[in-house]
Write a protein that binds this DNA or RNA. Structure first.
Lengths: 229, 229
DNA sequence: ACCTGAACACCGTTCAAGT
DNA sequence: ACCTGAACACCGTTCAAGT
């Protein structure tokens, strides 16, 4: 209790203990350390050694805290763009890897961010330029650029959702999938059962990195195919 | 107040007012009508005209209610498989459309389901067979089938996430995107700005159906390309 | 202007008591 | 076995009062 003898009322000049930024930083720490459910206004205030109500002078409500977190995490995200030195598809893949890494940096927050339309569109608009640049270089029409970028972003979101869920729950995909397949009624999903059987536990030991690369390879190949028509 | 004179204690035989199924059905109705946040144990009990605590005799806690909802919605989902009468890529697209439609049927629930690993893997294992069948027919190796199916499912999840968010918030993509692009610092995202400008409001009037089809086209083209190596 | 304390209207859940 | 009532330990937020 460093601040046990705290007084109420307005702090003296230069003594403000609270600011929007300080609140959001503390909130991000809670989310990263204890998960999204652990973030309550009361707990947040407690870690700042402040009355819960003090927060409301800097942020209007809890939703604003959430939105502020999304902003905090992604606003500073600058995509390192390899530029025209590499082929367009490498440029595109690099942009995708950067975006995935950004979403991965705060897995507890990612679930929240990806379910929040306005957070997503704020983030996407900041992040998407390298995608557009690469797709433009590939020779796509404006409409094709727009659609390909959307498809790629959707893939990254879906992938990151799975990745974040697994991270926050510490669960092992391969045994889970095998068990589930075994529990299905016999003959219900023959091809699935055969493929899973042929791959075996080693083959299914899911590696998120190679799964992501595989998706990128498929998507860039598909985009390249679209281009030539 | 139909049941104002309710008594406590065990109901007579054949008089049970509560069951797991009745609870979940009522819960789904609340979620569909008022959104996921409106689903509280106390409110759920109220709509069933029952004491909140009675629910705990049928489901251990609120998380079980959520999981039960995911199960309820997707367990009965049978994919209409056009079978080998159509080319593999049409079969694949049909399976994807069916899965998207299933996620779309309860948009308020979709956000929840897609953030819940165990719900997702339970759903996926039931839904994924037609994907495997089509990809197998395309001549992919087991490993390629596995990876292509994952990529496709990730795309559908990311797409559905965006679709569900927009539905639950009733928001218009095109003006939002244009405004956001205009608010970016000049020169920050030149290609994005140019593409958005060339498409114009009409070109950006986002149609989820054609966005989804565009993604499917790219993915199937990419899968076809992978196959021939 | 900024922080506080008490209060309001909620939550999910435990536990002992009814029939 | 199934339902209930009271209680506990929380929430987010409003409002009036301090300095």
């Amino acid at each position: 209790m460093i601040n046990a003898g705290k007084r109420s009322g307005r702090p003296r000049a230069g003594e403000e203990r609270l600011s929007r930024e300080a609140i959001l930083t503390a909130a991000l720490r809670i989310v990263d350390d204890k998960g999204i459910d652990a973030l309550t206004m009361r707990r947040l205030a407690a870690t700042l050694e402040v009355n819960p109500m003090s927060l409301y002078h800097h942020l209007p409500n809890k939703a604003a805290v959430m939105a502020g977190l999304a902003e905090l995490v992604f606003a500073g995200l600058e995509q390192p763009d390899p530029g025209d030195a590499v082929p367009w598809d490498e440029q595109l893949k690099d942009a995708a890897r950067g975006y995935r890494n950004a979403l991965r940096a705060h897995p507890n927050l990612a679930l929240q961010v990806l379910s929040d339309t306005s957070a997503v569109s704020a983030v996407v608009v900041v992040v998407v330029e390298p995608f557009y640049r690469a797709l433009d270089r590939a020779g796509l029409s404006p409409r094709q650029v727009f659609e390909a970028a959307n498809t790629l972003v959707d893939f990254i979101h879906g992938f990151s959702l799975g990745e974040a869920s697994v991270r926050t729950e510490n669960f092992d995909l391969a045994p889970d999938l095998i068990t589930r397949v075994e529990q299905l009624p016999a003959g219900k999903a023959p091809v699935l059962a055969r493929v899973v059987g042929e791959l075996g536990p080693e083959g299914l030991a899911y590696d998120f990195d190679s799964g992501f690369e595989s998706g990128l390879a498929t998507l860039t190949a598909g985009i390249a195919a679209t281009r030539r028509r």
